[in-house]
Design a protein around this nucleic acid. Sequence first.
DNA 1: AGCCAGGTAATCC
DNA 2: GGATTACATGGC
Length: 324
Amino acid sequence: MTIRHLDHADTLRLPVTGGPFNFRHTVWKPSHYDTPLEAHTADRSWRTFRVGDLVVGVRLMCEDRTVVADIYTDGDYKPTHREWLRTRLTTSYGLNEDISVFTALAEQVPAMRGPLTALAGMRQSCPEDHFEISVIALLLQNMTIAGTARMTRALLAHHGILVHFDGVTLRAWFTPVEIAQVTAETFKQQDRLGYRAKTLPHLAAFFRDHTPEDLHGENLMEKFQEIKGIGSYTAAVMASHASRDPSVFGIDVWNRKIFARTILRAPDADAEVITHRMNALFPGHAGTAALYLVEHDYLSTPVAPLLDPSGISAWNQALEAPTA
DNA sequence: AGCCAGGTAATCC
DNA sequence: GGATTACATGGC
């Protein structure tokens, strides 16, 4: 179990455009389950990224209308990496996105009053790339959050990269190329993915052979669902998060009840009814509305609460333990 | 001890 | 077609 120590290599100052910005609720989402990929305190966040072969640790803070990203790496950091990271971070957290159209629509909907007030300026976040978010969506299929978190830890412990930077210990994703030769049997026996094990090699091959850019828009969604084990939910999570399509959201048995309760004032409802209602209320922005409804629902009882700064060392020890 | 979970595809009428 | 069921797993 080797650990890689990443050194400070750069500081990026990323301007925020497009109206109000809520740093904390953009970078840390109350509904997101705990992973070794990131850590958050009240005013700063740490997150790992892959830039191809390069492994990068990022510490994020916010000064007024600027996100300050300190970059840590142990590789050969080149100017192209700087530009790639500038683009990746700006896109991942929607720093250049204008959500005023959504806000104007939401102000007309009583059910959105609470979410808008509490979360004003929150934007979609997806530090994962298309492959990584697809793995997460795959692990969410028909599984409890505890089970999804367990499988995520197993995959990252066995196939990811353990890193230490700026006083925190985290893991970084594997790339499609790095797990291309891992068999479904290994994912099943070693990582305990259950029936999802069969899908992961296809996911890796898909994103090894296609860049999301050359399969844009609906074409990507359609091609993606040709993979056995990838259905409308997993594809929608990829589209709404990594492709950042504000009109799309994946419906599952969990958020379905949240939407039914908040929008339809019912304990539950058919997915088709919810989709129709959300699209009618928020044409072109139903995905953003879904994001606000879910995060507001979890704001008072977050799945993975913010760490106290003194809690970071305990976090580190848990990850560095051999069984992590 | 069972259920069943932030789905999907195969099978059945 | 739409309804029903198997799929793997382990936390509660």
